[in-house]
Simulated scan of single mutants.
Amino acid sequence: MIQNLQDTVTLNNGVKIPGMGLGVFQIPDADTAAIVEAGIKAGYRLIDTAAVYGNEAGTGEGIRRGLAATGLKREDLFVTTKVWNDGLNGEQTKAAFEESLTKLGLDYLDLYLIHWPSKDANFKDVWLAMEDLYKAGKIRALGVSNFEPHHLAALLSYATVKPVINQVETHPRNSQTAVREFNAAHDILTQAWSPLAQGTLFDNPTLQQIAAAHHKSVAQVIFRWDLQHDILLLTKSAKASRLVDNAAIFDFTLSDDEMAQIDALNQDHRVGPHPDEYNFEL
């Protein structure tokens, strides 16, 4: 379990990734640079975006500004983006990667993910193209997002490069136990998106009681729950001040009983779509 905001864990290919990072989902491109810059200044070293977010250019600008403001080097950051899989072939995947890299203004990516599986599990060409980019040294690690165990099983049947991460909607009402167990069995780390269930957990009495006992916010308690389950964590805020609050989770520990109480909140309830039911038309 990580001990601070810069602490890392080791992926199955030996690359190290910060255990907690800043995501920019639903942040307008015009606002993203300021948030990313503020995040880097606040100590975040993992920045997560995606082609479909429409803010890769702003993310790249924020990275440049953040590096200039802090004196850090590119290699001090870990940058993730994602390819939108909608029946792409190999060449289209490589073109999408180059477009993302250009928008970000980077020479390489630390992590590249398939954003969603398709209903017919038609992502083989996408993955094999990503493997080519990885073997060419343009990407340091490959992963997936929103993959159920059957999607991962299909991918693992032909992959020559194992995914390092499966990024899935994970929060106390959707604890993803089956997915996390499958990931762990195959040395794939779980990374949480929407850990606060889009704010729908803030009025939960159990979480409020635990938060009060530790003089923390409900959000901080949830983030701590993730870390104590060894779930990699992506947080998001459009307010720079809240970025600091989100990271104030390393000075307390949830007891075994408190962890069990939070675990018991699971209802397999999603705030986003189920991967087997998602419509990929934009």
Rank of each mutant, 00 (worst) to 15 (best):
Asp125Glu: 14
Gln26Phe: 13
Thr10Asp: 08
Gly58Cys: 12
Phe78Tyr: 11
Thr70Phe: 11
Thr70Ile: 12
Ser118Phe: 01
Gln198Leu: 14
Gln208Ile: 14
Lys138Ser: 02
Val179Glu: 09
Asn166His: 13
Ser237Ala: 06
Leu72Cys: 06
His150Met: 12
Ala211Ser: 04
Arg173Asn: 01
Ser100Leu: 08
Arg180Met: 10
Ala136Lys: 09
Ile231Val: 09
Val36Ser: 03
Gly137Cys: 03
Arg140Phe: 04
Arg64Lys: 13
Ala42Glu: 15
Gln167Gly: 00
Leu46Phe: 06
Arg270Cys: 01
Thr190Val: 01
Gln198Asn: 08
Met1Ala: 12
Asp120Gln: 13
Thr93Leu: 08
Ala136Thr: 07
Ser237Glu: 02
Asp120Ser: 11
Asn13Leu: 12
Ala69Tyr: 15
Phe97His: 09
Lys73Val: 12
Glu181Phe: 07
His150Gln: 11
Thr200Asp: 09
Gln167Met: 03
Asn89Phe: 12
Asp86Lys: 15
His171Leu: 04
Ala141Met: 06
Ile63Asn: 00
Glu131Phe: 11
Pro163Tyr: 02
Asn246Asp: 08
Trp84Met: 06
Pro195Asn: 03
Ala184His: 12
Asp256Lys: 12
Lys73Phe: 06
Ser157Tyr: 01
Ala264Met: 06
Arg270His: 05
Leu155Arg: 06
Ser241Cys: 08
Ala95Val: 10
Ala50Lys: 01
His186Ile: 08
Lys162Val: 09
Leu207Pro: 05
Asn166Gln: 08
Gln228Ala: 03
His214Phe: 13
Val9Trp: 09
Asn204Cys: 14
Leu201Asp: 03
Ile165His: 00
Pro163Arg: 03
Phe223Pro: 00
Lys216Cys: 03
Leu254Ile: 14
Asp120Lys: 15
Asn89Tyr: 09
Glu277Gln: 11
Leu46His: 14
Met1Trp: 07
Glu169Gln: 13
Pro195Cys: 13
Trp84Glu: 06
Pro149Asn: 05
Ile35Gly: 03
Ala247Lys: 04
His229Asn: 13
Tyr112Pro: 02
Gln176Arg: 15
Thr200Phe: 15
Gln209Asp: 12
Gln26Asn: 15
Glu258Met: 09
Ala197Gly: 12
Thr49Phe: 12
Gln209Trp: 01
Gln167Arg: 07
Ser157His: 02
Tyr112Gly: 01
Trp127Gly: 00
Phe202Arg: 13
Ile114Tyr: 11
Asp268Tyr: 14
Gln267Tyr: 10
Met1Val: 06
Ile139Gly: 01
Ser255Gly: 09
Phe202Asn: 11
Ala159Pro: 02
Asp48Met: 02
Ala159Met: 09
Pro163His: 02
Phe25Ile: 13
Ala184Phe: 10
Val126Met: 13
Asp48Cys: 02
Arg180Lys: 14
Gly143Asp: 05
Val271Cys: 10
Ala96Arg: 01
Thr235Ala: 03
Gln176Ala: 10
Ser255Met: 05
Ser118Asn: 14
Asp257Thr: 08
Ser118Ile: 12
Asp276Pro: 01
Asp276Gln: 11
Tyr53Gly: 07
Val218Met: 05
Ala260Met: 10
